[in-house]
Structure formats: structure tokens, C-alpha cells
Computed example of a mutant assay.
Amino acid sequence: MKLKIFVLTTATFTAGLIELIIGGVLPSIAQDLNVSLSTAGQLITIFALVYAVSGPAMLALTAKIERKRLYLWTMLIFTIGSLLAFWSPNYETLFISRIINAVSGSLIVTLSLTIAVKIVPENFRARVIGIISMGVSLSIVLGVPLGVLTQEFFGWRILFLIIALLTLMSMVTIQFFLGRIPSEQTVPLKTQLQSLKSAKIISAHLVTVLALAGHYTMYAYFTPFLKSMLHLDTYWISAAYFVFGLSAVSGALIGGILSDKIGTAKSILIIISTFIVVLFILPVSTISLYMFTIAMILWGILSWAISPAQQSYLIQHAPASSDIQQSFTFSAIQIGIAIGSVLGGLVINRAESISTNAWAGGALMCVALLCAVYSLSRQGFYLAAKQTQSS
């Protein structure tokens, strides 16, 4: 079982790498392709939007296909998209490659998660969600800082060639170490969407959207923030991404353990409330590198701690549609990333200082907290249905 979880985590690492690595090299892409920084930022936005839409749709459309075969074909398409990005002679081609990678990447991550929660005991679900999320977090730890350094010497394009090679290696790993996984019963997308009629469930997904939007309003433009506010060079920027990534990895695990120990409701409220404080003090902390490092570590931990708590919460309150709720969660994450990257670009264009991005993100987190309180105070449709049946 541990080997299977490792294989699934490896797949999410590869898929997460191509989305996250681009944030560290946005200035280089903008300069090379002769576009503005905010226009380059839309490469993050389009990836997130396509990912959000394709996740649930692809899960429904591919339900009858044996999972291992689906994995391998999806990763092959993912490799093609990565090679297209490596070759891209202009912004438009790179834009298309992002769409290809978003569709295939969404299915890779969703398959990893839905399979993982079915092969562990119920009391370890939140923890294994955290472990799978660590696959994406590890792409921050290793991919983003190494990507920043690599592009300094070889250019940003080589990063996509490396990703293509890593994906091929992951395919070999899956072929040899992951057994045949039966297809699942097809659930029509219309039926899946009915779960969103619950105010408790839809507001829970809004928490994820707003939390990630608040996070990415700042994180999508972390490189220019570090250059502007702390005047860091390439090596120190790479070090900052590495520390942030380590914090994110631990945050995914901490979020899962915290949810298992004190419950999802308390975990969500604690994580979001702390996130608000950290985002508002982040620009102020730049007066000292030591203060900023502490604030950045907390920011990194919180950025991934929310995911296991949210997904475990949805599994508890919508067990009949748990698979699609997990897919919706990843869609909500991507919608939040899209909103945050767009908002961050608008703030950069209009504000006098990039520090305003952190405060704008903090404001979105405040709205996320209100949505969390609302969701926690609502009776779920699952509980209501059980009460109706018992009466």
C-alpha cells in the first residue's frame, strides 16, 4: 500500500511541477516573448481555468476506462504538451501548450487522489490527502528553486524539456509498480453537479476558491516581490522558493494531521484566521530579512495546510459524492489560482507598490473566513437526508 501511495504522489509531483514552475520564471518569459509581466501572468490564469473546468468533466468522461491505462495515455499527452512548450516560438504557442498540460494534468492529479483515499482506512483519509498533496508541494521545493537557477544558465525553455523527461520516467514507474485498477461506475456529470445545490457544500468550495485566490494574488508575483521589496538576486530568490516549498510540504502533512486530531471544522477556522494575519504582516516583515523569513515559512505552511482539511470536510459531509467533491476541490483551487493571478496582475498595474498584492490577498482571505463560518453553520444535505429517512 505504501508503494502505491508513493507512485501516486510521484505522479502528482510531475503534474504539479509544470503549473508551479512557471511562476518563478515569469520575468524571463515576458522578456523573451516580448510581452508584459501581467500578460505573462495569464499563462498561470489559463492553466488554472482549463484545469478547473476539465477536472470534473474528464473524471466523468473517462470513468469506464481502466485506470492504469488511462494514467499512461494521459501522461503521454502531458509529455507532448511539455515538449510543445519547450519548442514554442511565440506566446501563442506557449499559451496552447498550457491548455494541453492543464487538461492532462487535472486528470493525473484527480486520479491520484481518488485512488489514494480508497486504499487506506477511513481514519487516515485526511492524512493520505496531505501526502498526495505533498507531491505538488515537492514540486515547489525542488522544481521552482531549481527552475529559477537553471533558467539563469540555460534559459526557461529547458525547464519544459526536463519536465517532459520526468513525465516519461514517471510513466515507466507506473507501468512497473502500479497494478491494474478497474474502471468505475459512470456517474453523469449532471448528477454530480446536483451535490452543489447544498448551501453547505457550495460555500465550502467557495472557501477553497477565495483562500487560493488570496494566496495567489501574492504568490503568482513572488519573484518580482522579492526583487522589489528585498532586492534579492537570482540565488537568494531560488533559496526563498526552496524554503517556501519546504514549508508547503510540511503544511500539507500538518493540515492532514491537525484535521485528524482536532476535527476539520476547527482546523479550517484556525488555518484561515492565521493566514489572514500572515498576509497582512508579510509586506511589513520585509524591514528585516529574519522577520520576513519567519513570515514566509508560516505563509508556506498555511498555503497547503488548508487542502487536506477542506477535502476531509467534504468527504465527511458528502460521502455519496466524495470522488466528485475531491475533483471539485481541485477545480476550486484552480479557479482561485486564476482569480488570484488576474487580480495580482491588476493590482501590479494600478498600485504604486507590489506590497499591495499581499493586502489584497488578505482581504480575500477575510471573505473566505466568512464563507467557512457560514458553511460550518449549515446543515448538510447528507445529514438532512438521513434525518428524513429515519423519521
Results as ranks from 00 to 15, higher is better:
Lys118Cys: 01
Leu83Val: 05
Glu122Leu: 12
Phe124Gln: 11
Ile174Phe: 08
Ile163Asn: 00
Ala102Arg: 03
Ile162Ser: 05
Thr186Met: 07
Ala164Gln: 00
Leu161Cys: 00
Thr208Ser: 10
Lys118Trp: 01
Leu165Val: 15
Val117His: 02
Ile119Gly: 00
Ile140Trp: 11
Ser112Asn: 11
Ser133Arg: 05
Arg125Tyr: 04
Ile201Pro: 02
Val207His: 06
Val103Asp: 01
Pro188Gln: 04
Pro188Val: 01
Ala116Val: 07
Ser139Leu: 07
Leu161Asn: 05
Ser82Trp: 03
Leu94Cys: 02
Thr79Phe: 08
Ile100Gln: 02
Leu84Ala: 08
Pro182Val: 12
Val128Ile: 15
Ser97Thr: 03
Leu212Met: 14
Ala204Ser: 15
Leu111Ala: 01
Ile99Lys: 05
Met75Thr: 09
Ile132Arg: 07
Ala199Gln: 12
Thr150His: 00
Thr191Val: 13
Val187Lys: 14
Val109Gln: 03
Asn123Pro: 08
Leu189Trp: 08
Glu152Gly: 15
Leu83Gln: 00
Phe160Lys: 03
Ser195Trp: 02
Ile108Tyr: 05
Ser183Met: 01
Tyr91Thr: 08
Lys118Gly: 06
Lys200Asp: 05
Gly179Met: 06
Ile129Leu: 15
Gly214Gln: 04
Val136Ile: 15
Thr114Arg: 07
Ile202Ala: 05
Ala126Lys: 04
Gln185Asp: 10
Ala199Pro: 11
Gln185Val: 11
Ala116Lys: 02
Val141Gln: 09
Leu161Arg: 02
Phe160Met: 00
Ile162Gln: 06
Gly143Lys: 06
Phe124His: 11
Leu178Asp: 04
Val187Ala: 09
Ser195Cys: 08
Leu107His: 06
Asn101Gly: 13
Phe86Arg: 07
Ile132Tyr: 09
Thr208Arg: 01
Leu76Ser: 10
Leu206Lys: 09
Ile119His: 01
Leu142Thr: 10
Thr150Gly: 08
Val103Gly: 00
Ile181Asp: 09
Thr173Met: 14
Leu196Tyr: 09
Ser139Val: 06
Gln192Tyr: 03
Leu111Cys: 13
Ser203Cys: 14
Gln151Ala: 10
Thr114Trp: 06
Leu159Glu: 07
Ser183Gln: 03
Trp87Thr: 02
Val144Lys: 01
His205Ser: 12
Trp87His: 01
Ser88Arg: 05
Ile99Ser: 09
His215Ala: 06
His205Gln: 12
Thr79Ala: 12
Leu76Val: 15
Trp87Pro: 00
Phe95Asp: 03
Ala126Trp: 03
Leu196Arg: 06
Leu142Gly: 04
Leu84Phe: 12
Ile119Cys: 01
His205Cys: 11
Gln194Pro: 05
Val148Asp: 07
Leu193His: 04
Thr150Lys: 02
Leu193Tyr: 11
Leu196Ile: 10
Leu206Ser: 12
Met169His: 04
Arg127Ser: 10
Phe124Met: 14
Val120Thr: 11
Ser133Cys: 07
Ile181Lys: 05
Ile131Pro: 03
Leu83Arg: 01
Tyr216Ile: 13
Phe160Gln: 04
Val109Ile: 14
Phe154Asp: 10
Val128Ala: 06
Ile174Gln: 06
Ile163His: 00
Ala164Thr: 07
Ile99Met: 13
Tyr216His: 12
Ser139Trp: 09
Ile174Pro: 05
Val109Asn: 03
Ser112His: 06
Ser97Phe: 08
Gly143Pro: 10
Gly179Asn: 14
Lys197Gly: 12
Ile131Gln: 05
Leu138Phe: 15
Ala211Phe: 09
Lys118Arg: 13
Arg127Ala: 02
